[in-house]
């Protein structure tokens, strides 16, 4: 029986525990692999394949305005508008376990960057000008730890160069609101401008879930001789491009007062398995 006063921290700890199992638990699977029971079936000309790395880019529109406490005010859109913003990210996967006649599964981690910036409006328009010369920005560093399943049986056994995949795990985004003077702060004031509360710093983090499905196109089929030579020279088994639909549902896990910085979008990228 867990005492109620411990319940909240444990709930908050659960996502991290899952992530830790994904990260630290993988060596156990690898240990099995080393016994030969789950050994990968590399073809004779292939170097061992254990990892994958992805370089990713895609549009990013944080769902800040969907937070219920904001009502329909839409502060993000009011300040930054609807212009397309982009996220660049890099993901590293450990293909720790190969499921015979299916594909690989293992943990992966990713870190990205995206930023929205615009000129800040003036409180009181000056001579018909509503915008100041000062910029206001929201910078987000989305990260996640996921389990990645890559179904490469089509490519490996049927020579169909498509590799569907799925990812699920925990997301954590660090974010920072800033203006030309540095990190933003907000101090609630009355009509006279007198402070009615303490200043709140415009930076924080948001937990959430990360789900994604995608399809990779293994480029080795374009020139198998060259790809084999590339493997022999660099150890890169497969080079692929991919498209992915991700749901980065960052609405806070065990958190209160959350900035919804998640995003649901298509993204594209280039990857290597090695």
């Amino acid at each position: 029986m867990i005492r109620p006063r411990l319940a909240a921290p444990l709930v908050a700890a659960l996502p991290s525990a899952v992530a830790a199992v994904l990260l630290f638990g993988a060596p156990a699977a690898r240990a099995d692999d080393e016994t030969g029971v789950l050994a990968s079936r590399h073809k004779t000309y292939e170097s061992p394949q254990n990892f994958a790395i992805e370089i990713r880019i895609g549009p990013y529109h944080p769902r800040i305005d969907t937070a219920p406490e904001l009502g329909n005010t839409g502060p993000y859109q009011a300040i930054f508008g609807n212009d397309m913003r982009w996220e660049v990210a890099m993901e590293f996967d450990w293909q720790a376990y190969r499921i015979p006649h299916v594909g690989t599964i293992g943990p992966g981690i990713s870190a990205g960057y995206t930023s929205s910036s615009a000129l800040a409006p003036l409180v009181h328009p000056v001579n018909g000008t509503t915008l100041s010369g000062e910029s206001t920005s929201l910078t987000i560093f989305p990260t996640y730890a996921v389990a990645v399943l890559r179904v490469d049986v089509l490519s490996r056994e049927l020579h169909v160069p498509f590799v569907p995949y799925a990812k699920a795990g925990l997301g954590l985004a660090f974010w920072r609101a800033s203006n030309t003077g540095g990190t933003s702060t907000y101090t609630p004031t009355n009509a006279k401008g007198a402070a009615t509360g303490s200043a709140v710093l415009g930076e924080g983090k948001t937990w959430g879930e990360q789900l994604a499905i995608g399809m990779a196109l293994d480029l080795n089929f374009l020139d198998r001789r060259t790809s084999q030579g590339f493997d022999n020279a660099t150890g890169v088994n497969h080079t692929f491009i991919f498209g992915e639909l991700q749901d980065y549902n960052l609405t806070g896990i065990g958190q209160k007062n959350v900035l919804y910085v998640g995003n649901q979008n298509w993204l594209f990228g280039l990857g290597f398995e090695f």
């Binding site: 406490e69 009502g71 930054f80 003036l122 920005s137 609101a177």
Partner: peptide, 15 residues
């Protein structure tokens, strides 16, 4: 002049 940056707007709107 005072400005309304994103953080001001978000906080004033209830964030």
């Amino acid at each position: 002049e005072p400005i309304v940056d994103f953080w001001d707007k978000y906080s004033q709107d209830g964030g």
